[in-house]
Amino acid sequence: MSKALSHAKIVPRRSTERGHADHGWLNSYHTFSFAGYYDPKFQNFGSLRVLNEDRVAGGSGFPTHPHRDAEIFSYILNGELTHRDSMIKKGSEGTQGDDFFRMKRNDVQFTTGGRGIAHSEQNESDEEVHFLQIWALPWSRGLTPRYHTKTFSEEAKRSAFLPILSPLKAGPGASEAEEKAAEPTLENTIPIHADFVMGAGIIGVDKRFKWTVGADAVKKTTGRNVYIHVPMTKNGNAKIRLDGREDAVIGEGDGAFVSNVNAGDVLSFESIGEAEAEVVVLDSD
């Protein structure tokens, strides 16, 4: 199978090379420098700043803590994670909403840290929760803090890459009203304050998916940075091949830096393992 994107540079990031910390209650792998893990070669990729694959034991979690000037989102793979705003007390949450959400598989919780917020993320169940924690650098500082929560269809993710996040349609110059309206560039996605698109797919064995760089949603059309990640969900049995390249085969926990690509380029994904592969695409400026 020949390379479809001969101009693209694809560099795998192996799972075993990631930063790793096991605190007992938290088992975390870091693709980029984070907390106690520092590597000057892995600081960010475009506006993608953090990609942690976390497992949190039942009855544990992250107590109330602050964030600012980062776009932060959690993609739940398995188990349950409860997000609470610092102003909401346990037992008085009311209905599910942007401030409080008991997240399960296929849910995404998104936070604009902006001028500063505080929240907690706790596993209030008895079972382990497995999720991706991802941060992107926003296009401006001092934004109004905001939460979004949304559930994405597993069935849709099995047929093609499903867009999860896309840029706020109003762009960096958004008015207060446009910020409040929070309209994303792509329908049925969560708006992010960055020239950034996230997609997710579940590729069946021997099946192929395609990702169109930029997803017709971005301003920067040349020299985009696309990071691919395969979460550890199938006991090591999932594997994909990118762009038909034998040197771009990645398994669970692995990722790949795809650079020197432009909006409209089509990147192919082929599932070549013994189990379906869940794949996350992080497409940034």
Rank of each mutant, 00 (worst) to 15 (best):
G79V: 04
A57P: 01
A170V: 09
L137F: 12
A263H: 10
F110C: 02
A177G: 01
R141H: 09
E128Y: 11
L137D: 08
Q96H: 04
G24W: 05
A217S: 14
H130C: 04
P40N: 12
Q96R: 12
W25K: 05
H229L: 02
F73S: 01
T233Y: 00
S6D: 14
N27C: 10
A181F: 07
G97C: 03
I202M: 11
E71V: 03
P40W: 10
G236D: 00
S33L: 08
N188K: 15
A181V: 05
T64L: 03
S284N: 06
D265L: 07
H23L: 13
K9A: 05
Y37P: 09
P145C: 08
P145D: 07
N237Y: 02
S74V: 07
L77K: 03
E278L: 02
G264W: 08
A177D: 13
W135C: 05
D98H: 15
A256P: 07
P231R: 06
T221P: 13
F161K: 02
F110K: 08
P66V: 10
N225R: 08
A170F: 11
L267V: 03
S120E: 12
M87N: 06
G199D: 03
D126G: 05
L26D: 01
A275K: 15
G91I: 11
D39R: 12
N262K: 11
E179R: 14
T31Y: 02
H23Y: 15
I164W: 07
L5F: 12
S86R: 14
A256I: 02
H130T: 09
H83N: 11
F100Q: 01
V197D: 07
G114Q: 12
I72R: 07
D195F: 10
A21Y: 14
I202N: 14
I228L: 04
G255A: 03
L143E: 10
P145R: 11
D247C: 08
P145G: 06
L165F: 14
A181L: 13
R55F: 08
T95M: 03
D247R: 05
F196E: 01
V197Q: 06
G264L: 07
Y147H: 05
G199P: 06
L186W: 04
R115I: 12
E127K: 15
D195W: 10
K219A: 11
R241H: 02
Y37F: 15
L51N: 05
